[in-house]
Design a protein around this nucleic acid. Structure first.
Lengths: 161, 161
DNA sequence: CCAGAATGCGCGTCGGTGTGCCCAAGGAAA
DNA sequence: TTTCCTTGGGCACACCGACGCGCATTCTGG
């Protein structure tokens, strides 16, 4: 299935205002509310829209420090990977974890209140992960780009429009 | 301001169902709809909830390849940083960009359709960034953890509850 | 014991939502 | 070229539910 510009406009708008009503979206996109409702439902049913979620301001919770953690395991055996992954998903301060190609086995993104708090996280969460050979942490000084969806998605229209 | 368990329950639920109605949320949290409406509005006004946004399934758009790109600049001068950042925000395939401490100056997260597509992105987007001395790319083989909000946020209650 | 805050209930209004029907455009087949 | 069929759009309507208000009540802290 291909999406036209109106579909992309709907998705772009819902990416910003997930609670927008049909009529509200309809006027912005340039459709009637019923036509828009059909398209929105199609987008949901076809899985383009996974969920509607509230975005929290993590700074309000004191989580102002982002840390990238590179981890190498003692072994790349399937058993070691599974053991590590089973534990890393439980770490409450980890928001992302990639299994990587290259020298590092895993890269984590960790959110902390400050550097002292990261020391605590390192001690209570990261150092308890199994099969870890090496941990290397780098602090993010600033967030330059932070998008949920790459803008390239909204740039490509395949139906007419 | 401190949040109690009901506030956290509201946030946790809205993180999953941003379109939930007051009554729906009220039953899940254990409040009346009016009490819930007041708390939700407070959470919004105080900035705990930044926005309500639709989460798109990027795999549906063919974006199945995540690449971490480490970039070092020729110079760490303020002018070089500003020039780089002004351009990187325009890259349509970049979803995240951190200014880093340590050896690397910036770390980007790039979404591509596949490895060939990343080659195109490298050529048309990344190689055109100014003041870049070194680019090092690592492919993510798998997404182990992908959370918008660390679970630690929902674990700490400060009012009664 | 008292004051303030938070809660719960009931109500009326308002708006969204979904349906049915008709219309326009485009493509295919005769 | 004509006709048919499919796809997507718009209009109108009615139903249903959410939303926000006012007031009585409870709970908490001083």
């Amino acid at each position: 299935m291909a999406l036209d510009r109106k579909d992309l406009a709907i998705l772009a708008e819902l990416t910003t205002n997930a609670r927008a009503s049909h009529t509200e979206l309809a006027t912005k996109v340039g459709l009637s509310s019923t036509a828009l409702a059909r398209r929105q439902k199609t987008l949901e049913d076809d899985g383009y829209i996974q969920a509607y979620q509230a975005a929290l301001d993590l700074a309000q919770f004191g989580l102002t420090t982002t840390v990238l953690v590179r981890i190498a395991l003692e072994s790349q055996s399937d058993e070691a990977l599974k053991a590590f992954e089973a534990e890393v998903v439980k770490c409450p301060s980890v928001v992302r974890c990639f299994l990587m190609s290259g020298n590092d086995d895993y890269i984590l993104i960790v959110l902390a209140r400050d550097i002292q708090d990261f020391e605590r996280i390192h001690r209570t969460e990261l150092s308890r992960l199994p099969r870890v050979a090496r941990v290397q942490s780098s602090f993010a000084l600033r967030d330059v780009v932070n998008r949920a969806v790459p803008t390239v998605v909204f740039g490509e229209a395949k139906r007419q429009g």
